[in-house]
Design a protein around this nucleic acid. Structure first.
Lengths: 111, 111
DNA sequence: CAACCGTTGTAATTAGGTTACAATTAACGT
DNA sequence: ACGTTAATTGTAACCTAATTACAACGGTTG
């Protein structure tokens, strides 16, 4: 069975981290308009990457997640800053879990 | 512990499926030039989605994976068609595994 | 009511993508 | 050697998407 290989191939988290998308796509995915996303970024609440000078921004999936979570909390009545703080804590957890997963996948690869 | 929630939040495969990126980004990720990607698509080997009429194409992560795998096989000496066929088989497996994972995550959610 | 928060509008500019037509390069069979 | 096919690349004209900066708006709070 080459199934383990297929699973690892599918859950290639290293690859997932490279998967960064343009702002229009993020707006489509999250339902948060581009203008708002840029505003949150101006305020330092989320962040994007720029490949080169004068290039367009790209958001990784952790930041997209963040946008979704913040929007959810704001819908519940949190202020932007409060929502951001709350999400920040959850993100720490998510990052930890993430690294643990990366390690698991890597040790499975050695079989 | 809200860890299970965080894991599910991280591995939100439903969300992952929405994560589609523009051709330039695919080129960056895979190292395969945009022109070549479009050529492979013309030949029907990979596929993209278009949101509306006259919009730009977007590739989901399974298709990006496909591009990577095909390029690898071609580097080993396979022809394009042979590589495509081989990858097609692996993709079937990957899709199966994928659906199984989606179901697992969903049943975990019921706890 | 003044100040702030969160958001949105828009115009001008730049970046990125599409299409179609054509050319190139290498391998394959006769 | 020759025509053929496979795989790729170049490019021009056109269209779509993103950026920046400046401004404005409605709601809330002191």
């Amino acid at each position: 069975m080459s199934e383990k290989r297929d699973v690892n191939s599918l859950l290639d988290l290293d690859f997932l981290q490279k998967l960064v998308v343009a702002i229009g796509e993020v707006a489509e995915i999250t339902g948060v308009p581009t203008r708002k996303i840029r505003y949150w970024e101006e305020k330092g609440i989320i962040s994007s990457v720029k490949e080169g000078e004068g290039a367009t921004r790209r958001y990784d999936y952790l930041n997209i997640k963040k946008i979704l979570l913040i929007q959810e909390l704001m819908d519940e009545g949190f202020t932007l800053d409060a929502a951001a703080k709350k999400v920040e804590n959850r993100m720490k957890n998510i990052n930890e879990v993430f690294f643990r997963l990366v390690n698991n996948v890597q040790s499975n690869e050695e079989n």
